[in-house]
């Protein structure tokens, strides 16, 4: 069953007298528990498309359905609540909250949802261990390196075990070994809870681990490699 369906998404920006089409009629259907990678050159519109699917930006045209809920029709507050319950987000720019420590930043999503029944302590320990944050938990973001900040952002996105995880260059600041570990963690969690992952990445070795790879060029989305591992001819 499709957990997410993006239908003919168009996102345009006006810059003075020019209209820039960042996303041009992009459509995507993602199955429950699937791992999708979106690759493309800088400025191709992949991050914009990801943000539209996550409900962080409204498209000019098109719809995004998540579990048959059209998020493009929700009010901002409804959408925020919905996103908090079902989605996790790793931003390209870490966007950590500067006045909270690494541990507190990771805990923010748990506070937001006030989920009394959700016992996240075990999952938290696992995230901290896997992401090698144990000795940095009480440090402010300004006291962490870029890579450490990235790992905190990833932990924060995963703490609530969201059904859909949107990740924008999650391994961008990490070395090879750490990047592989992060990916293993994502895949393990996916295995455990059937999490759906939609990831934007430059890293082909990471993208190769996905069930399907899409490529974005000039705002247009095309299938690059299917579930069976066949590469499409993209001109």
């Amino acid at each position: 069953m499709a957990i997410l369906e993006a239908q003919s998404i168009i996102k345009q920006y006006r810059q003075y007298d020019t209209v820039v089409t960042a996303v041009n009629r992009a459509s995507l259907k993602v199955e429950d528990g699937e791992f999708i990678a979106i690759i493309g050159s800088s400025g191709s519109g992949k991050s914009t498309f990801l943000h539209v699917m996550a409900g962080l930006i409204r498209p000019n045209y098109g719809h995004v359905l998540i579990r048959n809920n059209d998020i493009t029709k929700m009010s901002p507050d409804e959408l925020n609540r919905f996103r908090g319950q079902f989605m996790g987000m790793v931003f390209q720019k870490h966007n950590l909250i500067p006045q909270f420590t690494a541990l507190e930043n990771i805990m923010i999503p748990t506070v937001m949802l006030n989920k009394d029944e959700y016992h996240f302590e075990e999952h938290l320990k696992k995230l901290i261990t896997t992401l090698k944050l144990s000795d940095r938990l009480n440090h402010l973001p300004s006291e962490l390196s870029g890579g450490q900040q990235q790992r905190v952002a990833i932990a924060r996105a995963m703490i609530n075990r969201p059904q859909v995880l949107f990740a924008d260059e999650p391994t961008g600041n990490l070395d090879r070994a750490n990047a592989d570990e992060v990916l293993d963690l994502l895949l393990q969690t996916r295995e455990l809870i059937g999490q759906t992952i939609i990831m934007v990445t430059h890293d082909l070795s990471i993208a190769e681990k996905a069930d399907r790879i899409f490529r974005m060029d000039n705002g247009e989305l095309r299938l690059y490699r299917d579930r069976d591992g066949r590469y499409m001819d993209i001109k």
Partner: peptide, 20 residues
């Protein structure tokens, strides 16, 4: 960001015990 205005703590709060 406002990180220069923040006083660096020794301990983290247990935010899970707080309300939002």
């Amino acid at each position: 960001d406002n990180s220069n205005l923040v006083i660096s703590p020794r301990q983290s709060f247990d935010l899970s015990k707080t309300r939002f």
